[in-house]
C-alpha cells in the first residue's frame, strides 16, 4: 500500500506535465477502426474453437470430399470434385467467418457485459461494430485463400484469369451481406447459446440446399429450389463456383450480387434498429430491476 501511495503522490505532482501520448487529440476514425479490427482479430485467433470451425473445419470437409470422391468428374457439372468443392466450401468458410462468427461472438460479448462497457467509452458504436465486421472479413479472406490454395496445390484446382474480378466482387458483396446478417442475428438472439443454435440451424440446412455441400441435382423438387433461391446463400455459392467452372459463366452475376446486397442492406437496417448493448438477463436489466423494485415496495 505504501508503494501505491507513493506512486499516486508522484502522479499527483506530475499531473500537469504527465506524459500524454495523444494529448487532447481525439483519435481519428480510421485509426480507431484499424485498432478495433486488430483487437477483434486478436480475440478471434486466441479462441481456438472459433478459428477451428471457421477455417479448419471447412478445409477438412473439402479434403475429405476430394479424397472420398477421388476427384472424379461430377457429371451434372462436367468438372472435377475438387474444382467444385474448393470454391463451394470457401463460400462456407467465408459465411462461417462472417455470419456465424459475428452472431456468436457479439452475443457472447453482450452476455459478458463487454458491449455495455464499450458503450460507456467514447468509442463510436459504428466503429466498434465496423471493427468486428472488418476482422470477420479478414478471417473470411484467410479461410478462402487457404481453401483455394490447398485446392490448387494438392488437388489441381484451376483459377481462370477472366473470372478473377467477378470472383473478388462476389466475395466482397457476399461477406458484407452475411456480416450484416450476423449482426442481425446478434440483435435478435437473446443470448450467446441461442445465437449459436440459430446460426447452425440456419446455415447448415441452407448449405445443403444451396449447392455448398451437395452438388445441385436435377431431381430436386421445385419448392426446395424456390426455398434455396429465396435465401442469399445460393446467390453467393452459385456465382462463386461458376467462376471456377470451365463451362460456367465467368462474368459478373449482377442479379445474384444485387439480391445479396438487398438482403445485406435490409439486415443491416434491422440490426441497427434492434441492436442491444446490454445483456438480456442479469440484475442490470430493466425487467429484473423493476421486479426488484416492486418487491422492495
Amino acid at each position: 500500500m505504501r508503494a501505491l501511495r507513493d506512486e499516486t503522490s508522484s502522479i499527483v505532482t506530475d499531473r500537469a506535465t504527465m506524459t500524454r501520448p495523444n494529448s487532447l487529440r481525439r483519435p481519428s476514425a480510421p485509426a480507431l477502426l484499424l485498432h478495433q479490427t486488430r483487437y477483434e482479430s486478436r480475440i478471434f485467433w486466441r479462441t481456438p474453437i472459433s478459428a477451428f470451425f471457421t477455417v479448419i473445419f471447412p478445409l477438412m470437409i473439402f479434403v475429405v470430399f476430394a479424397l472420398v470422391f477421388g476427384n472424379e468428374e461430377i457429371e451434372e457439372l462436367g468438372i472435377n470434385t475438387a474444382q467444385f468443392y474448393a470454391p463451394a466450401l470457401a463460400v462456407f468458410s467465408a459465411v462461417s467467418a462472417t455470419y456465424t462468427n459475428i452472431a456468436i461472438s457479439t452475443t457472447y460479448q453482450r452476455d459478458q457485459g463487454i458491449l455495455k462497457r464499450a458503450r460507456g467509452t467514447p468509442l463510436p458504436s459504428w466503429i466498434f461494430l465496423g471493427g468486428k465486421i472488418a476482422a470477420a472479413i479478414a478471417v473470411a479472406i484467410i479461410g478462402t485463400v487457404v481453401m483455394l490454395a490447398v485446392g490448387a496445390v494438392f488437388f489441381g484446382v484451376q483459377l481462370y484469369a477472366d473470372s478473377i474480378i467477378p470472383l473478388v466482387l462476389t466475395f466482397f458483396v457476399g461477406v458484407a451481406a452475411f456480416g450484416a446478417l450476423g449482426l442481425l442475428l446478434a440483435a435478435i438472439a437473446p443470448n450467446g447459446n441461442a445465437a449459436t443454435a440459430i446460426a447452425q440451424a440456419t446455415l447448415l440446412p441452407l448449405a445443403f440446399i444451396s449447392g455448398v455441400f451437395i452438388v445441385p441435382g436435377e431431381n430436386t423438387p421445385d419448392w426446395l429450389n424456390a426455398l434455396a433461391n429465396f435465401f442469399p446463400l445460393k446467390h453467393f455459392a452459385e456465382p462463386f463456383t461458376a467462376a471456377f467452372s470451365p463451362i460456367g459463366d465467368h462474368g459478373v452475376h449482377w442479379a445474384d450480387l444485387g439480391y445479396m446486397a438487398v438482403w445485406g442492406v435490409v439486415a443491416l437496417a434491422l440490426a441497427i434498429r434492434w441492436f442491444k448493448w446490454e445483456p438480456s438477463t442479469g440484475t442490470s436489466t430493466p425487467r429484473r430491476r423493476s421486479k426488484a423494485a416492486a418487491t422492495a415496495a
Binding site: M18, R20, L24, R25, R26, H35, P122
Partner: peptide, 8 residues
Amino acid sequence: RYYPERLE
C-alpha cells in the same frame, strides 16, 4: 486508445 487524453 478511445480517449484523447489517457494515463500511461
